[in-house]
Amino acid sequence: MKLRNIILGSALAASTFMPAAASASGDVNIYSYRQAYLLEPLLDAFTEKTGIDANVVFAKKGLAERLAREGENSPADLVLTTDISRLNELVERGLTQSVVTDTLNDNIPSSLRHSEGLWYGLTTRARLIFASNERVEEGAITTYEELADERWDDRICTRSGKHPYNIALFSSMIAHHGVEEAEQWLEGLKDNLARKPQGGDRDQIKAIAAGECDLSIGNSYYYGKMLQDENQKAIANQVHLVFPNADDRGTHVNVSGMAMTQSAPNRDNAVKLMNYLASEEAQSIYARVNFEYPANPAVAPSELVSGWGTLNRDDLPLETIADYREEAVKMVDRVRYDN
């Protein structure tokens, strides 16, 4: 397979592996926020199955700006993302087109796809509470709402409130409770922080192990990554997982997802890839390589992830949650969360 990955800086230099003109070919071209090693086994399998080569440009940010700059001459057919906010940005900027197939509708639940087919979720990651084994008893906390309880004063660590993973969670709180109640909750959570928000999700687990805090918020797959890392496994084993709101509305999830670009010179090939990525075969590969929950309900999580317990997912459509993103960002600023 001619899988060529270029790691680009934040400026997204003009150089690319693809032709400047967006002419159709026997390939499919992908702009990806997802890391290359996660895509390679999926795209290898797709090429073997169809004979269609997949070309990938990877970047941590800036792909929406690049698509907008390239306009109708963009060679990109698909964008693969790591967060609902990035999918929503593509839609808001008019950079995607609708794709509706029976395979996509049958395999991806309605809450994990755009109502007009402008994007589809591929995997989900639960936004969990990590709790100290030594200092937090099982069952001591069961909901996101309880993170604002005074008993957790000076006992919680999080990454920046502006990070897309937290913005998505805060957006879901607005969707469920309204702006006023959600903001009161966020103020309570901020008051309970043991330190200034910093680092990534794994850093919060490390802080619990170091005794800096007793609770943290993080994506489920980071815990799986730590368990598979001999240098971090002992740290991960010092916390237990809480699936918030499992007994009522369900645990908030975010998605990695895909969207077809407005220009898509290789549309037919791109549709084939989208259908494949939603298939049971591809979803099983996803489940193995990154400790995520498959979007396709017919596919079980990996054995490791299944061992954590059953995920009762919040079925509030992510499209609805994305509508509150701007308000969530303002709310983080109003309560001065990161300060």
Rank of each mutant, 00 (worst) to 15 (best):
residue 216 S to D: 05
residue 174 I to M: 08
residue 202 R to Q: 15
residue 198 Q to P: 00
residue 181 E to S: 14
residue 213 C to D: 10
residue 162 K to W: 03
residue 193 L to V: 07
residue 187 E to M: 09
residue 202 R to P: 09
residue 188 G to Y: 01
residue 191 D to Q: 14
residue 202 R to W: 13
residue 215 L to A: 04
residue 187 E to W: 01
residue 223 Y to K: 07
residue 165 Y to T: 12
residue 181 E to G: 05
residue 213 C to Y: 10
residue 177 H to M: 15
residue 210 A to S: 14
residue 209 A to R: 11
residue 201 D to L: 02
residue 206 K to C: 02
residue 215 L to V: 05
residue 203 D to N: 14
residue 215 L to W: 04
residue 209 A to Q: 12
residue 163 H to G: 11
residue 214 D to I: 01
residue 218 G to P: 10
residue 170 F to L: 05
residue 174 I to P: 06
residue 169 L to H: 11
residue 196 K to V: 15
residue 197 P to N: 01
residue 168 A to G: 14
residue 202 R to N: 13
residue 182 A to Y: 01
residue 222 Y to K: 00
residue 205 I to L: 14
residue 200 G to P: 00
residue 199 G to W: 04
residue 177 H to P: 07
residue 204 Q to C: 13
residue 204 Q to D: 06
residue 183 E to D: 07
residue 164 P to I: 04
residue 217 I to Q: 05
residue 210 A to W: 06
residue 210 A to D: 15
residue 170 F to M: 04
residue 219 N to P: 10
residue 183 E to P: 04
residue 186 L to I: 01
residue 204 Q to K: 07
residue 214 D to V: 01
residue 192 N to M: 07
residue 223 Y to R: 09
residue 207 A to M: 12
residue 168 A to T: 15
residue 183 E to A: 03
residue 186 L to Y: 01
residue 181 E to R: 14
residue 221 Y to Q: 12
residue 177 H to V: 05
residue 216 S to M: 06
residue 162 K to R: 12
residue 180 E to S: 15
residue 192 N to Q: 10
residue 219 N to W: 07
residue 189 L to G: 03
residue 174 I to L: 09
residue 199 G to A: 06
residue 178 G to V: 13
residue 182 A to W: 04
residue 218 G to C: 10
residue 216 S to W: 06
residue 176 H to W: 08
residue 183 E to T: 14
residue 177 H to Y: 15
residue 171 S to F: 11
residue 209 A to D: 13
residue 220 S to K: 09
residue 178 G to N: 14
residue 164 P to Q: 08
residue 171 S to L: 10
residue 175 A to R: 02
residue 184 Q to D: 14
residue 217 I to P: 02
residue 206 K to A: 07
residue 201 D to R: 02
residue 199 G to D: 06
residue 211 G to F: 00
residue 220 S to D: 15
residue 193 L to E: 06
residue 184 Q to Y: 03
residue 168 A to N: 11
residue 192 N to K: 07
residue 183 E to Q: 15
residue 188 G to R: 03
residue 215 L to H: 05
residue 171 S to N: 12
residue 196 K to A: 13
residue 190 K to P: 09
residue 185 W to S: 03
residue 184 Q to P: 00
residue 198 Q to T: 12
residue 172 S to L: 10
residue 195 R to W: 07
residue 202 R to I: 13
residue 169 L to R: 08
residue 220 S to T: 13
residue 223 Y to L: 15
residue 211 G to N: 00
residue 195 R to G: 05
residue 186 L to A: 06
residue 203 D to I: 02
residue 211 G to K: 00
residue 172 S to Y: 06
residue 178 G to M: 13
residue 165 Y to V: 09
residue 196 K to I: 14
residue 218 G to M: 12
residue 180 E to A: 15
residue 213 C to K: 10
residue 211 G to L: 00
residue 166 N to K: 03
residue 211 G to R: 00
residue 191 D to W: 05
residue 168 A to F: 08
residue 183 E to M: 10
residue 200 G to M: 07
residue 162 K to M: 10
residue 165 Y to L: 08
residue 172 S to N: 14
residue 195 R to E: 15
residue 167 I to P: 06
residue 193 L to H: 11
residue 174 I to A: 09
residue 204 Q to L: 07
residue 185 W to Y: 05
residue 197 P to I: 01
residue 175 A to E: 05
residue 177 H to A: 14
residue 170 F to N: 01
residue 187 E to D: 07
residue 179 V to A: 14
residue 192 N to R: 09
residue 202 R to V: 11
residue 201 D to T: 11
residue 170 F to P: 00
residue 198 Q to E: 13
